[in-house]
Design a binder for these strands. Structure first.
Lengths: 120, 120
DNA sequence: AGTAAATTACGCACCTTTTCGTAACCAGGA
DNA sequence: TCCTGGTTACGAAAAGGTGCGTAATTTACT
């Protein structure tokens, strides 16, 4: 999803939040400052390439704050920005919706044969 | 994003909503019933294949209702399920958040050099 | 004292996997 | 034969994983 096909804000947010990692990172970061290596430990299946790439995407979007410290070994800290913090409850709401509607979504509806009508 | 790495509902929703089309389709469908060809017209950049694929994904997730009518020419209608309708305001909220926080996200924060401290 | 190794957060190149568009084909009744 | 909605095969392009290189300092060993 490189380019946008509409100029609506929703497509823009989704461009940033799409994929496996953005929301997961949001969740690890909402508990406070994390270093790069912390995030890798938290989720052992991210490759370092993906992790840097996604963190930079979130940073560019203003959701994540990246702070580097001089000295060695290198140290870089990641936090949510205030805006990023405000995003958390919205993502939570999506998760809640998913759980709450599980029965409705996967319930009887799937099994019922849809009305088959003659087109007039 | 074929497989899930966590069992959290958020990753599950994002698996369904990720990408360019799911939220766009949600938006075209929230105005009421649409046929396959309507949706293609609404968004001329979706390929035939992508459209069916995404619609089926949404159908499987219980967000979209697919109804076929017998008679010719063939007719298939797509609607949001009640659950799908409930999703719309949540996506709206994301879009609003994106717009509202634009200044905060892209504002001065980006330009400020971060604190650079000597590691003790 | 002097050398070697480890440390952290990456960037880069290479290669595999996944995704997506194109295009052709299908069904089945008017 | 045309229409709509859909499937399939193929190939190109994009996404993503692996491993190597690197910085400058500390620690570890001899």
């Amino acid at each position: 999803m490189k380019e946008l096909v509409s100029r609506c804000p929703i497509e823009e947010v989704m461009q940033v939040l799409s994929g496996r990692w953005p929301t997961l990172l949001l969740y690890y970061l909402k508990d406070g400052t994390k270093r790069f290596s912390d995030l890798r430990r938290d989720n052992p299946t991210v490759s370092h390439k993906m992790l840097t790439q996604e963190l930079r995407k979130l940073e560019k979007a203003g959701i994540v704050q990246r702070t580097t410290f001089e000295g060695y070994p290198l140290r870089v800290e990641y936090d949510l920005t205030p805006a990023g913090l405000g995003l958390v409850p919205l993502i939570d709401a999506l998760g809640d919706w998913w759980e709450e509607t599980e029965d409705a979504r996967l319930g009887t509806g799937r099994l019922i044969e849809r009305a088959v009508q003659a087109s007039t």
